[in-house]
Simulated scan of single mutants.
Amino acid sequence: MLFNVEKAIIQRITDWHNWPFYLFYFPLGYAWVWYYIKTRSLWFFTASNPTLTFGGFEGEAKSEMYTQLPSELYPKSIFISPALPFADVTPQLLRAGIRYPFVVKPDVGMKGLLFRKIVNEQQLKTYHSAMPATYIIQEFIDMPCEVSVFYCRKPANCKGSITAFIEKKLLEVTGNGSSTLEALISNNAEAKEFLSTIKKQHAKDLQTVLPAGETFCISHIANLYNGARFVDLTSEVNDTLHQIFDTISHQTQFLYGRYDIKCQSVEDMLQGKNFIILEFNGAGSVPNHIHAGKYNLPQAYKEILKHWKAMYEISRDNCKNGIPYWGFLKGYRFLQNSKRYFNKLKQLDKELDLNVR
């Protein structure tokens, strides 16, 4: 028993994928200091994406992204103020052509906080009454494949580069015709880590017996914090994919960051068809291919440093072209406000139980 405990502790310490944020990034702090010295700005990254607040590092609104994209490239979306009477929400849904089920999420969010799949009016009413800030109602994109594309382009260049392309595998279990959902989750190694959260979210479904071969999606949020698994497909990037994101980058002036995308298949994405952009994330984007199993810790750090260098060079060039870095006080106050806001969302995310996600 003691041996198993020691083994679990050692495994947790050596599994750098799940280290706390500050522990993981502490050894790379020297690079941030170096860029600060070179630019004389702690917030040098704010010039990397001129059309996103704070360069898209943190606290940017998704509405900023969507207004820059052609409407056919992102899901039908409406933005709802918490001050809006709930009776006025349904007419907006009808006008936008959004039907149940759909997803809701904060306009300014992170890490899947308060992302929910809504299946009926009562759930929407509960969500609306709890939300302290503007949120998005968005059509549910029922495509089987989710991918991420990391893109960088210097402002003077016509063409950029795709530095990473991954497929995200959602946390799912498959039925065998005899086991309950609770048993399937308990016996799934990837799901065990999230067991207490899962049981709360899916309490009404836990005793359901899944037919053999039927899959149950435990979480529709495709990030590490919700059990998603990443597959590195960077070697498959082709000219078509480069052309797609070069075109989008010139339309939006989005020069550095990660696109999260739903598509019918990886093959379709590589051919530039049947895909929808869920969102794009700027200077705060993590090159998630480091979590796809091919990289040890030194290699992961090397990838991060490579991306930070690209971000610095893009910001530097934009600054030379008249786009200033944020001043210290402006950036500090923005981060403090963001911290308070996200702490409120984190607490609400724990409390708001709609029994679906």
Rank of each mutant, 00 (worst) to 15 (best):
P144D: 02
V147H: 04
S148I: 10
S148N: 15
F150A: 03
F150Q: 01
R153S: 05
K154E: 14
A156R: 12
N157Y: 12
G160N: 13
G160R: 14
I162M: 07
A164P: 05
I166C: 07
I166T: 14
I166S: 07
K169Q: 15
L171T: 09
E172G: 01
V173N: 07
G175K: 02
G175R: 00
N176V: 08
S178E: 11
S179E: 14
T180R: 06
A183D: 04
A183P: 00
L184Q: 04
I185R: 00
I185P: 02
N187Y: 06
N188S: 11
E190W: 08
E190Y: 12
A191K: 07
K192D: 08
E193R: 05
F194P: 01
T197D: 01
I198S: 03
I198Q: 02
I198W: 06
K199I: 03
Q201P: 00
Q201G: 05
D205V: 01
Q207S: 07
A212C: 10
A212T: 06
A212D: 11
T215Q: 03
C217E: 13
S219R: 01
H220W: 09
H220N: 15
I221R: 09
I221K: 08
A222M: 01
N223F: 08
L224W: 06
Y225I: 06
G227E: 07
A228D: 10
A228V: 11
D232K: 10
D232R: 12
T234Q: 14
T234G: 09
D239A: 15
